[in-house]
Amino acid sequence: MTELVLPTSAAASNEAAEKKPATASRRRNGLAYWQAAPMAFVFLVFLVVPLVLTVVVSFWQYNEYEIIPAFTLQNYADVFEGCLSLSEPCTTVRTYLSTLKFCLLAWLFTLGIGFTVAYFLAFQIRSRTTQMVLFLICTIPFWTSNVIRMISWMPLLGRNGLVNETLQRMGLISKPIEGLLYSDFSVVLACVHLYTVFMIVPIFNSMARIDRSLIEAAYDAGATGWQTLRNVVIPLCKPGIAIGSIFVITLVMGDFVTVGVMGGQQIASVGKVIQVQMSYLQFPMAAANAVVLLGAVMLMILALGRVIDLRKEL
C-alpha cells in the first residue's frame, strides 16, 4: 500500500534534482542506473531469457523424444489448424472464446463486488481501526491454498451436495440441479471467489487516497450521491480499477487449475492445452501456444492501457 505512494515523492525529488547543476544530476542518474541494475538483472535472467527461448523453441521441430533445432512454421500451422473455415470455429478459437468468456464474467463480477466492498470499507467505516480489521478479514480466505478453497465448493454444489439437498428438502425443486457443479457456473463462481480480493485491494487503495474535501465539495455543490460516485469517486479510482482488472484478467487467462477442477476437466482452457502438450514432450508445440497466449494477453492489456493511462494516473 505505502509502496504505491512512493512514486509521487520520487517524482518530486527528481524535479528538485533538475534545478541543481548538470553534473550532479548526471551523477544521480548514474547512481539510479546502478540501483536499478539488480532488478534489471533478475528480469533479464528470469524473464527475458526464458521468453526469448520460448519464442525460439516455438519455431523448432520435434519428435517423440527430442527437439530438433531446425526452423519450421508447422507448430503455428497446427495451432491454427482449421481456423480459416468459417462454418465451425477451430479448437484454438473455441478455446480462446471460452477463456475470454470466463475472463469477462469473472471481471464483471469481481469488479462489481470488489468496488462495492472497497467503497463500503473506505467511505462507510469511519474508524481507521475497524477499517483495517475488516480489510484483514477480507484476506482470511487467502490463508489456505487455492486448491483447497476450490475443492471446498464440491460438497456444497454436488448432485447430492448441501445446496441441492436443502432445496429439495424445502420442496423448491424435485430433482437435483445438475448444473451447479462441473459447469460454466461453478467455474465463474470459483474464479470470483478466488480473485475478488485482487480487485478489492487496489480499488481500496485508490479510494483511501481520495481527498475527503473533494466529496464534501461535490455535496456542497449540490451533487447527489449517485452523481458524486459517477463524477468524483469513479474517475479517481480508475488506476485501482485498472490494476485490479489487469490482475484478474491475467490470472483468469492463464488459469487452468480452476477451470479443470470446477469444470470437471470438460471445459477447455489455453493453460490446459499447454500442460497436456508439455507432458507429451511436445515442447515446441506448447511454446507456440504459449507465444499465442502471451500475444493475446498483451493485446488485452494494451487495450486496457488505451482506456486508462496508468503512468499518468499513478
Partner: peptide
C-alpha cells in the same frame, strides 16, 4: 500404448475437450 500418430491424437483429444 504410444501411437505412431501420437501428436495428431493429442491434438484431436484437445479438440474433444474443447468441444
Amino acid at each position: 500404448a504410444v501411437m505412431d500418430e501420437n501428436t495428431y491424437m493429442v491434438r484431436k483429444w484437445n479438440e474433444f475437450i474443447a468441444a
